[in-house]
Design a protein around this nucleic acid. Structure first.
Length: 601
RNA sequence: GGGGUGGUAGUUAAGAUGGUUAUAACGCCGGCCUGUCACGCCGGAGGCCGCGGGUUCGAGUCCCGUCCACCCCGCCA
């Protein structure tokens, strides 16, 4: 008896075929299943690559078979044995190694497993709560392992691409100076400086710009970022960005680089985009065609602006909407007239009225019949002339269904965006396994906060487009566009970036436009402004959400499925029970008092 | 902060209008079995029905509160 190590292992559990028959092999893994037939015992041995069947027959010398009979789920063992063909009668296509089995001559048990909290099988799912509590067991399931393996391959392709292109991988601090604005920060108390706090970095933004000042030219980092905001299906408190920055670069340099990098990483992961090069679209066009800045371009159904038609349509509510400068938009769903029964349309009407969908007041629908006339909620108001105009404006054909929403601009956009995606889903028109990428460019530089203040849409170091520079600080400030770009894949914002300001005059103008006084700017970003005095190269960068990319390439439904140890929706680690209270002594060292609620234990 | 769904053996679930001893499957324990691959067959153990109140002769079931998980809005690039 000997304890084998990985060096002794001759094959993984996914590699043996009938061509290996007769070989003596050593395998190491977990007992995935045991089938005890009395005279013959079959054991499925599992490692991260796959499963191989072991067989223990009665004729074997010693107590080998009785020891095999005592094996239980998830015992960790190594075996030495001979590969034998199962023959046509006993082979199976269910596993890749189904042609063979290993006739075991030596069995070593490294450790035994107690009965499991839940079965480790892909076809039986447990509740998420239990799975997260025993995450290390959940991670043994091949479906989750597959995701992490794919993510690893993806990251290594990214690294390979960027280092091959002359990028330096440089780490930046996670514990940084707190700056207001943007996401809520996690705070880290300082023992050496009682009463003072670091912030956990929301992103390496400022440091990477300083690396450009430092002359690094091309920087990247696979960086953890921390944001104290409510987690969602695609958001965690801590997540990972592929962060990069390049000197002497303009928008197209960055987009070309990132595009090539993403395509390369997809290719190495065995995935392909529907069309290359990626489509580019200005923000305004995206809003007009899709009502959102991250449209899913795997399918069509664009929005059509109907304000002109509405204003002279003869339909009371539409004419009134147009007079009130509401936004009137329609979508045409081809060959769907029979699909949209009265019941389905009523359901859609309820759908668009929901608050989270945008709270439209109603949904106008029309179906074009074989006779060339519309039927539907407002059909009776349509003259033959107006019918023709609508048909032409929206390219409506027989058996198509048209949906129209007229409301305040933001509401119409939000509702029509949701409606377009919802209809694509219920009509099942999104081809599975397809990937469609889109660059959205020329984002607005500013937006109004809820308090009516101008705030940066991206961040205050984003460069405005040249032709809008004179609009800064004027009435037209809202229409200033930024040299900013987002990468959208399948309707997910997977990353974004911008050209940064390197001219102190422009930077001063932008701060002024945001109502940030000089001394305030000094206080917040003084070190950056100071650095920029000593020779700053023009630079631009990009940051991609690695977790979202991993979700897309694996088809995962939740960000938790591509993170080894994710947190719950309340930010808890259910396995370790973090966060926890700490000792009074620890708090004293930090100079912190907690307004605690001891009964709440 | 707001809205929704769920919580019953180790696990996954069933438990109409409140009514005897709370079911099933898998797992676990014991026995049988030489071609299984979700092996099969026989037997057994296993429960604070999330937690705390309340209504009732009687609560897994009804009411109130609370905790946890998940989804959405707000928030978040």
């Amino acid at each position: 008896m000997s304890d084998y190590t990985l060096r002794d292992r001759t094959h993984n559990c996914n590699s043996l075929t009938s061509r290996d028959a007769g070989k003596e092999v050593i395998l190491i893994g977990w007992v995935a299943s045991r089938r005890n037939l009395g005279g013959a015992v079959f054991v499925d041995l599992r490692d991260r690559e796959g499963i191989t069947q072991l067989v223990f027959l009665q004729e074997k010398e010693g107590d080998l078979q009785s020891r095999a009979q005592q094996l239980r789920y998830e015992d960790v063992v190594s075996v030495r044995g001979t590969v034998i063909s199962r023959g046509d009668k006993n082979k199976t296509g269910k596993i890749k190694t189904g042609e063979i089995e290993v006739d075991v001559s030596e069995l070593n048990i490294y450790s035994r497993s107690e009965p499991l909290p839940f079965p480790i099988r892909d076809d039986i799912s447990s509740t998420l709560e239990t799975r997260l509590k025993y995450r290390y067991l959940d991670l043994r399931r091949t479906s989750v392992q597959k995701n992490l393996i794919m993510r690893s391959k993806f990251v290594s392709a990214i690294r390979k691409y960027l280092t091959g292109d002359g990028f330096l991988e440089i780490e930046t601090p996670y514990m940084v100076k707190y700056t207001p604005g943007g996401a809520r920060n996690f705070l880290v108390p300082s023992r050496l400086n009682q009463g003072q706090f670091y912030a956990l970095a929301e992103s390496p933004q400022i440091y990477k710009q300083l690396l450009m000042v430092a002359g690094m030219e091309k920087y990247f980092q696979i960086a953890k970022c921390f944001r104290d905001e409510d987690p969602r299906q695609d958001r965690q408190l801590e997540f990972t960005q592929i962060d990069l920055e390049m000197s002497f670069a303009d928008e197209n340099d960055i987009m070309n680089l990132v595009e090539a990098m993403i395509i390369q990483a997809f290719t190495e992961t065995g995935l392909k985009f529907n069309s290359v090069p990626f489509q580019k679209m200005e923000w305004e066009q995206a809003m007009s065609l899709y009502g959102c800045d991250k449209p899913d371009t795997r399918f069509g159904i664009p929005h059509v602006n109907l304000n002109k038609f509405a204003s002279e349509s003869g339909i009371g509510i539409l004419e009134k909407a147009a007079q009130n400068s509401f936004l009137v938009k329609g979508i045409c769903i081809p060959k769907s007239a029979s699909f949209f029964s009265r019941k389905k349309i009523d359901e859609l009407t309820e759908f668009v009225k929901k608050e989270e969908i945008g709270q439209a007041k109603g949904l106008i629908w029309l179906k074009l019949g074989a006779d060339g006339a519309f039927t539907g909620s407002v059909a009776k108001f349509l003259t033959p002339e107006k019918t023709e105009i609508l048909k032409n404006t929206m390219s409506v054909e027989v058996d198509d269904t048209v949906f129209i929403v007229a409301d305040e601009t933001a509401v119409t956009h939000k509702v029509m965006d949701n409606l377009r995606r919802h209809i694509a889903k219920i009509l099942n028109i999104i081809p599975p396994g397809s990937f469609s990428a889109l660059w959205v460019t020329r984002f607005p530089m500013f937006e109004k906060s809820s308090e009516g203040q101008w705030v940066s849409s991206h961040h205050p170091f984003t460069h405005p487009v040249r032709e809008d520079l004179e609009k800064l600080g004027t009435e037209q400030q809202g229409s200033v566009k930024a040299m900013a770009y987002d990468l959208v894949i399948n309707g997910n914002e997977v990353g974004g970036g911008s050209v940064r300001i390197h001219d102190s005059e422009i930077q001063a103008k932008v701060f002024k436009s945001l109502g940030i006084a000089d001394e305030q700017a000094q206080q917040l970003f003084g070190f950056l402004l100071e650095a920029f005095k000593y020779g700053v190269p023009p630079h631009a960068g990009f940051a991609a959400g690695l977790d979202r990319l991993a979700m897309i390439i694996t088809g995962a439904e939740s960000i938790r499925d591509v993170i080894a140890f994710p947190k719950s929706v309340n930010g808890a680690d259910l396995m370790t029970n973090a966060p926890t209270r700490v000792l009074e002594k620890q708090l004293q060292e930090l100079g912190i008092a907690v307004n605690s609620n001891p009964e709440k234990e």
